[in-house]
Design a binder for these strands. Structure first.
Lengths: 249, 249
DNA sequence: GCGAATAATTGAGTTAAGTCAACTACTCAA
DNA sequence: TTGAGTAGTTGACTTAACTCAATTATTCGC
């Protein structure tokens, strides 16, 4: 079984102890300025938002928030990598997303009522995130309605991405789900091959695709033996995505 | 197999022949005025949008748009019911969503680049939809940035809903996915039981939940024989949702 | 209201994927 | 550098879900 420990286990260190760095430090925030949610903000408004925010360092496997916790903040990943997951009552852990540097997450909670996190978030390796108060961002939007336009585009694209994720999951067999997942990792729409890096350890990719790690391993071994992918740790080389697409379906 | 015909078959009538009703007709548009995307609009702005739109009548199984078609419009359901689905190259049809009167769909395409429909849309019964030009809506937002606030809320909630749909699909067994789906159909958070109506024919609920119709039928028969649901056509009576939740997981 | 078409159910047999277990290969921290 | 703890792989076996087929219900257009 993938990762079946409860949120209290070592896998997710129990307490969020944020290490604040001085607020005025800029390193790592360049990407923030070019993010869809923020790039239209005037410099002093973005500075205000950053001042209202806290910089957090998270250790490997450290828990950032729990599902159902009141959501007073949303987050921007400065460095490292996080994953979003849910725990059900039997302790099964289902991975829903992985978040890379330059991405925001939990930003949709700004408009939820009541605002509660829909899942757990934990660092997959040591990471740094900016913790942005929902209220500060909302105030900014209230004062500057014109900022909502750029945010709108971001939210619409988020909904499109989630729809696409859902679409993959309606594929009924594990092999084809995995193939679809790999194709989506390729840049430029799978027109040409290339090397992709799995954004999660294999056992968590398996969880994300609703299959057991053993099944994931066997499918990948099979694709490998058919010359469809070459595997090097978490890096996969796909020479002919079209052939991969053909054998699925 | 659920519905495996191609889009050209009788199941999805090939040509969209819209029957326009006079633009000034108001009946059925009350719900539009209270929709999150439109309720903050001043009356004359909404009237303008309606004037720019066309009212379409769709027959049973009639196709509204195809995946990958350029998306110049989005839609509001006045009456009837539609479903969103995708077709893959082997002709397998995977249902992704059903849309009820009072709902919008394809509205996220406003911000896609290039704007193309991500799936097929067809009427599940004879239906009436309002076909809203993306450009008209965008112009309205450009002229009135304050309207973006309400739209933002709608888009954020859409993303939350899609995330939740994705979450169900990461449940690894068919029975528990079905139970989760039923629980979500219940109003007031499954605190009390009640009757729910399947928003899709059973074979399409099965498709939506990535299982075969036979599997759906067998699971439902089993739940029925255990006294967990009573089934009457597309209406299900769930007396004790907590017990249903307990047996899942 | 009739009849054809589609949807739903049920049974029997098959297969994909899960489970359990053993083992190997990493990773990370002391 | 080492060793403990995870992650990943592989084999053997089991089971949930799929497939195919037959039958019964239901729906919808005429």
């Amino acid at each position: 079984m993938a990762v079946t420990q409860s949120a209290e286990s070592r896998y997710t260190k129990p307490v969020l102890v944020a290490i604040n760095k001085p607020l005025d430090e800029e390193d790592g925030l360049e990407a923030l300025r070019s993010h869809a949610l923020f790039r239209s903000l005037k410099a002093h408004d973005l500075d205000y938002l950053i001042q209202q925010s806290r910089r957090l360092r998270l250790g490997h496997h450290q828990l950032l928030y729990r599902q159902d916790m009141p959501a007073h903040h949303f987050f921007f990943v400065i460095s490292g990598r996080l994953r979003l997951y849910r725990l059900d009552s039997s302790g099964i852990d289902r991975t829903l997303d992985s978040i890379a540097p330059g991405d925001c997450f939990a930003e949709v909670m700004i408009y939820a009522d009541p605002p509660r996190y829909a899942c757990y978030a934990e660092a997959l390796k040591s990471s740094e995130v900016l913790m942005i108060p929902v209220k500060a961002y909302q105030d900014l939007l209230d004062r500057h309605p014109e900022y909502a336009q750029a945010a709108l585009r971001h939210y619409a694209m988020r909904a499109v991405t989630r729809f696409h994720d859902l679409e993959i999951m309606t594929v009924q067999n594990a092999r084809d789900r995995l193939i679809r997942y790999l194709i989506d990792l390729l840049p430029n729409g799978a027109l040409e091959g290339g090397e992709v890096e799995l954004p999660l350890p294999k056992c968590l990719v398996a969880s994300r695709l609703a299959m057991q790690p053993e099944t994931f391993s066997r499918i990948l071994a099979d694709l490998k033996s058919n010359g469809l992918v070459r595997v090097n740790r978490s890096k996969l080389f796909i020479s002919d995505p079209q052939r991969l697409i053909e054998i699925s379906q």
